[in-house]
Design a protein around this nucleic acid. Structure first.
Length: 764
DNA sequence: AAAATTTACAGGAGTCACGA
DNA sequence: TCGTGACTCCTGTAAATTTT
């Protein structure tokens, strides 16, 4: 036997010697599992939510959700358990629930043909994707807010402050001396919402790897804080049950003092700088974090403010405020290191599309792309490209693609490609000579101002409404969850089919189908009674005295018709402005404020519509009526306000929470109505919330009519005039004679006229 | 009830096929 | 052979689901 064969033989034998004990253990283990149990497990594995319980020798069906253990029951066969699981899924996520169809398709063991055939629309997929994708950012922000709020109440807050670090940094926050730019105590934040019943258990994951760092565990929905040194957390995941040892051993009541104590213990918690914290984050995220910080520094040198959006939006990484009164530019930040082998920089232009995978950006997703290019952690330059430019070049809004960036020192080698990317040079800022110093080179400064002005103009002219900030209140403001309060069409149908269908206004049937296309605006207007004469519905409010007639026909309407409160202010929400363009900004064309025109038209429509029915309204003391106006806004011609069209007016409009958007609006409206009905009556000048007094020029022209509608005391003074009988008879005889030659109808009309004339005479 | 695992997401970096 | 662009991979996170 040749020597090399001998070697192979020995290798084979030694491999078997090593493998045999392993095989023996495996065989022993498999022999230990009874055949029937293995078969049962295989049966259970066929179905979702079904497990084999060897102790009971039964199949367990379980649907575990956040608010309960989810045990369904034990069954003799796996199929029975699977059917029970399906039933539980259908109960847990009934039809009106969001994602019902998708859950049925994905989760049911035996979906119907219709359920199996369900396909998610792109909008639904994207909404779902954003809901999941954005949650981590929201959690991170929320946990920092909670920690900051807790530490700010401490007396130590005068001396120390918490600084939030960029999202991907390994440390989430630095606790440092107030105003200091030096190092601080690195804090890793971990957030969790309660699991199980009564919010008693909080589960934190991925706790390892934070040595020499203070780990703070935040209970998002309980407000509790726990803290421990990173190295003391010897487990990767930790469940904390309120009241148990896991809670009491780590709970920190006075976080301010605790942080200050940790801050002083530099041996245990070595201080680090912001830059050091960034270096500790993952390589992928580090690029982005480093770029963001340097970009922020660059913009601060220009006295511009770069902030994180208040709510995480998938396509918006930061908000750039160039001017306090100016619009806010929504930035999509990208960063790239130089690719050594390929000799280029590149970024991916795509966004999360839920189950549909990556999607291209939409033309309204952001205003400005800030693509940073780095080398060894230093910002070499940045491309500031308005989204309109990207749209024009087919890089967004049509497909998701990779954008290859070519700064002047890394131009493509081929002439054709060089030409293809030549357009990028216009949007490039060379920052190689800047080095983060206080003075930005003058040439760069001028170029940057020009680029930002260009993006600002494009953004302002693209769509005015995007620049409006959302109302300052959401469902959370009122401490409610949309899932708990939402009103569904099904519920309404069942209600409508109930006791008195005739009393439900006809408009109700159509009003709760919100259309995304139609811009809906609701306005309340005063009235002394329901013009339809229908009984009061929950939409009506009563104050026990006069109605809210102050809104239209107060004598103060005699103010000049140029009263600016009518639609010109644009600040219908606190802190929300129409985002007027700074007049002094000569480099940018002033943007047309479309909202003022829209609002003026809406108010005119409201006034005219009420004027047209004012005669038919009967006053009812102590009552007011709420009207809901539906408007549609047409397309605006260049530089002109768009036409506003009235769709319908609903008396006693539905005040249910038909959408997550209307839910907080209705709640706010209810609260503010009380301010008008109670507060304003008791204290003149009291705040009225979102309600604004409509002082319309037109109301001046018909003071008597409006006064009549609002229960003014109309009284006829004087005494009845007695008409001479003979004269009257003559007149009647004369009219009788003339009536013989005419039709009976005409005669009736004359008689009526005569009576009217009599009345008029009396009045005179 | 608790622990473990899977899923889904975003982001930059890397790979590979194609064509000039 | 090299430049280009589409596609995949890797990492980190929290939520959801599965298993014990």
């Amino acid at each position: 036997m040749p020597p090399h064969h001998l070697t192979s033989w020995f290798a084979l034998v030694s491999a078997w010697v090593v493998l045999l004990p392993v095989l023996a253990r495996l065989l022993k283990a498999s022999a230990h599992v009874p055949h029937h149990e293995a078969a049962a497990r295989a049966q259970a594995a066929k179905y979702r939510g079904v497990y084999y319980n060897k102790r009971n020798r039964a199949f367990v069906a379980a649907l575990h959700v956040l608010d309960g253990p989810g045990y369904i029951g034990c069954f003799q066969s796996a199929k029975e358990a699977a059917e029970a699981y399906d039933q539980a899924v259908r109960c847990r996520y009934p039809k009106p629930t969001a994602d019902h169809e998708l859950r049925c398709k994905r989760h049911l063991n035996f979906p119907s043909e219709k359920e199996a055939a369900y396909t998610e629309s792109p909008e639904q997929a994207r909404t779902r994707g954003l809901k999941q994708g954005g949650c981590s950012h929201r959690k991170e922000a929320r946990s920092f807010e909670l920690l900051k709020a807790a530490s700010d109440t401490s007396p130590h807050s005068e001396k120390y402050e918490l600084e939030r670090l960029t999202g991907s940094s390994r440390a989430d926050a630095l606790f440092k001396r107030r105003g200091s730019t030096q190092t601080g105590l690195p804090i890793q934040l971990k957030a969790a919402t309660s699991q199980w019943k009564q919010g008693r258990v909080f589960r934190f994951n991925r706790l390892l790897g934070y040595d020499r760092m203070l780990v703070v565990l935040v209970a998002l929905d309980g407000g509790h804080l726990w803290a421990a040194a990173g190295e003391k957390l010897a487990v990767d995941h930790l469940g904390i049950t309120i009241g148990c040892g896991s809670d009491t051993n780590r709970r920190v009541e006075n976080i301010g003092s605790y942080l200050a104590a940790c801050f002083k213990n530099t041996q245990k918690f070595p201080h680090i700088s912001v830059e050091e914290a960034e270096v500790q984050c993952s390589p992928n995220c580090r690029v982005e974090a480093v770029a963001h910080r340097q970009l922020m520094k660059l913009f601060s040198r220009m006295e511009w403010s770069l902030t994180c959006p208040p709510q995480h939006l998938s396509a918006v990484d930061a908000l750039l405020e160039v001017d306090i009164e100016g619009p806010m530019l929504r930035l999509q930040e990208k960063a790239s290191n130089f690719h050594e082998t390929l000799g280029r920089y590149h970024i991916c232009l795509r966004k999360n599309g839920g189950s549909l995978g990556p999607l291209p950006y939409d033309k309204d997703d952001f205003d400005l792309l800030a693509a940073c290019i780095l080398h060894e952690g230093q910002l070499q330059g940045v491309f500031l490209i308005p989204i309109s430019e990207l749209v024009q070049r087919g890089l967004v809004a049509s497909r998701s693609c990779t954008l290859y960036l070519h700064p002047p020192w890394s131009l493509p080698k081929k002439n054709g490609t060089k030409q293809k990317y030549a357009w990028q040079q216009e949007f490039f800022l060379d920052l190689r000579t800047w080095h983060g110093s206080k003075e930005v080179p003058a040439q760069v400064k001028v170029h940057m101002e020009r680029l930002i002005a260009k993006a600002t103009t494009a953004a302002k002219h693209a769509c005015m409404w995007r620049l409006l900030r959302p109302p300052p209140y959401t469902c959370e403001t009122f401490g409610v969850r949309w899932e708990d309060v939402k009103f569904t069409a099904k519920e309404e149908e069942s209600e409508d089919e109930g006791a008195d269908p005739p009393e439900v206004p006809a408009e109700r049937a159509t009003e709760d189908e919100p259309t995304a296309e139609a811009t809906e605006a609701s306005a309340a207007a005063p009235s002394s009674a329901d013009s339809t004469g229908s009984p009061r519905s929950p939409g009506s409010v009563s104050d026990g005295e006069e109605g809210i007639d102050v809104q239209v026909d107060e004598p103060s309407c005699e103010e000049p018709d140029a009263n600016p409160t009518v639609g010109s202010s644009g600040d219908d929400f606190p802190g929300r402005k129409g985002q007027h363009v700074g007049d002094d900004d000569t480099s940018v064309d002033p943007c047309v404020n479309l909202w003022d025109g829209i609002r003026k038209q809406m108010e005119n429509i409201i006034i005219w519509s009420l004027m047209s029915v004012v005669d038919g309204i009967q006053h009812r003391k102590g009552s007011v009526e709420l009207f809901g106006y539906d408007f549609m806004i047409g397309e605006a011609a260049q530089g002109q306000a768009p036409d506003v069209w009235l769709i319908e007016v609903n008396s006693s409009p539905a005040c249910d929470y038909s959408t997550p958007v209307t839910c907080p609006l209705v709640k706010q409206m209810m609260e503010d109505t009380v301010k008008i009905m109670v507060d304003l009556k008791q204290t003149p000048g009291a705040p009225t919330g979102e309600w604004q007094l409509m002082q319309h020029a037109f109301s001046k022209q018909v003071p008597q009519r409006m006064g009549f509608a609002c229960n003014s005391q109309l009284e006829v003074l004087g005494k009845k005039m007695k008409m001479p009988k003979a004269k009257k008879k003559k007149k009647r005889k004369a009219s009788k004679k003339s009536a013989e030659g005419t039709t009976a109808g005409e005669g009736d009309g004359d008689e009526a006229d005569g009576e009217d004339g009599e009345g008029d005479d009396g009045c005179d």
